[in-house]
Design a protein around this nucleic acid. Structure first.
Lengths: 195, 195, 195, 195
DNA sequence: GATGAATGAGTATTCATTCAT
DNA sequence: AATGAATGAATACTCATTCAT
């Protein structure tokens, strides 16, 4: 039931935007009654928040899985893989993710951000720590913040308003270059010992 | 009158967000009647669009002015100055700009963005062209796109959700580093001839 | 509920006219909330249309019943009975019927009239056909049109602006005379064979 | 100026109906300012009333002229000429006249009717009196009322919803027949003395 | 007289939420 | 738990009318 409702919400959000999404329509589309929606969600925004949380979980899970499965590879490669996976996820359902992450980030930023955003930040920090012999940023917090925000913005832009005449492969490469470029510029790159 | 109304709109937008902004309150706050609001703006969204356009003008003007006044300096320095100016502008009224650029970008993206966004893109492209002996990106369009989107995202993030324990100066430096880093990574940097 | 709302609408329509009738007042008068009005009627005009349709049904039913119950009587008598019944109905609630049939005929003429108006026309045509040995109009369509429009107009006038110094009985007689007079003038009255 | 405004009102009334007619648009269309409209007409309905009055004058003048110019002809012929003239007038601008006479009759009926309606009634009464050796109705008031209302209704119907397959000439003949038919049925027709 | 900017009461309609069944 | 009819506060927008210039 809960999932049913959330799926309906997502579909309607994509079709009609936030303003066009209302609980009665969500219920109708989910094939349940409004009452049932309110049985599981205290109010309209809770629907969005749940979608948001779900999306956060997925992104987080994906990030963890990529990080784990690329253990041992150089940081540049691991970042490239992360970008690739994220981009793929956004290309799959661009509208919903755009709505959730841009238009509606304000709705639950106060509530949900702490839990999710922090976890992602932790992931990035530990990744940087693992590779501190390749790139050791003087301020890992700051570096993680730059990397995450840059990646997020460029992935969104790639999906929503890509520059004319570039294909996705080029965009993906450019995003990766941007992250690596930052790290190279920001870090006193400890030359990996030839040994 | 028009300005009065727009100022009231901006104030309310900041205080109550888009959803909480309604034409009656705008009128009341502006000290005019609803009718007068509708004398000058065909509908509620036109208020936001006007604010948006105004903001676009300002940002564009600022960019142009910085670019002109830094003529002759190296690209890295000029980008740093651009970042600085933009960051200053956003720090001055963070909430309004966040609302305009994030929450509400969808409201007029179709209408106004083309004109404004394109102008900014042109500015960046000509800037890159001026410095093609420092950094010559193989795909200037792509490079401009990366630079603009990265800068926008990091400036917003810096104002809205800065990483713990970093001051603005550090953030500004990091943003600049990110842009420069990307250019260094993406360009076959033509070594400026020693001659 | 639906009936409740329609009754309230009718009452308000009579008291305040179309311009003075608004959905909020209708709801209040019906003792329900505006929302409930919109649960059953898509918009204000649908209220009027429903009233109109209801009235159409009633008039049609009455006509049919009179025609059936006067089978065998001469046409003049049957027309007289029709007039009598219609006049009685209009005297019972003159204002509402005037508003529905005159002021508001334009609101749903396009939608509903076809079905209803046509049925009434059919009724009159078959009535004429039944009595073609008394009065055989060369153009039954035309004759029915004249009879219906004349009857309608005179009945309304009788209720709304009767001539000074005449009582209803005289008016009723005059209306009947008008219809019969037309038939006598328009038809090559086939003398009912003496045999 | 007054005429200018009235013409604009008429045009808009025809194009957009009563609901769509508002003083600001009337002023704009007339090429004057709202203030000027209010200089000459106390309120919106006064515009309609003036149009109504104007129309009344015209109809009355036409009636008088036809009556005068047909002096000496038999009543049937004179009625036929009246019908013809009225029908021609209505065919010339059917929408405006329909709106004035049907939809909006309620707006000024109370105010204007007395003056105009009475005059028309007087005209018809004197016409009947002139021909009392052809048709002498026992109740001239009643007869005039029937004739006027019947003519009005049939002329409108002829213009707005004519029966299928009949041309105007046939309708005009039918309307005349209806009036004559009524008179023949209602009057103890005094056989005009052969002498 | 003419203007038209300003007014603001009025109104149709929506939709989150409740609660009796 | 599920239903969905009922609610009514909220809101965008209109337009007759005024009045300072």
């Amino acid at each position: 039931m809960v999932n049913n409702i959330l799926e309906a919400t997502a579909r309607i959000l994509v079709e009609r935007g936030y303003a066009g999404t209302n609980t009665n329509i969500v219920a109708e589309r989910a094939g349940v009654s409004v009452g049932s929606v309110y049985q599981y969600f205290p109010n309209k925004d809770a629907l969005i928040a749940a979608l948001h949380a779900q999306h956060g979980e997925e992104m987080h899970a994906m990030m963890r899985s990529v990080i784990l499965s690329t253990h041992g590879l150089p940081l540049a490669e691991r970042l490239a893989r992360l970008i690739h996976a994220q981009l793929a996820a956004h290309l799959a359902q661009p509208t919903l993710l755009r709505i959730l992450e841009l238009e509606l980030q304000h709705l639950d930023e106060p509530k949900m951000s702490p839990s999710h955003e922090r976890v992602v930040m932790e992931g990035m920090l530990s990744l940087l720590r693992e590779h501190q012999d390749e790139f050791k940023p003087p301020e890992p917090q700051l570096a993680a913040w730059v990397l995450l925000n840059t990646a997020k913005a460029l992935i969104h832009a790639a999906v929503i308003s890509p520059p004319a005449g570039q294909d996705i492969v080029q965009l993906e490469a450019a995003i990766t270059q941007s992250l690596i470029g930052y790290l190279q510029a920001a870090c006193i790159t400890p030359q990996p010992t030839a040994a």
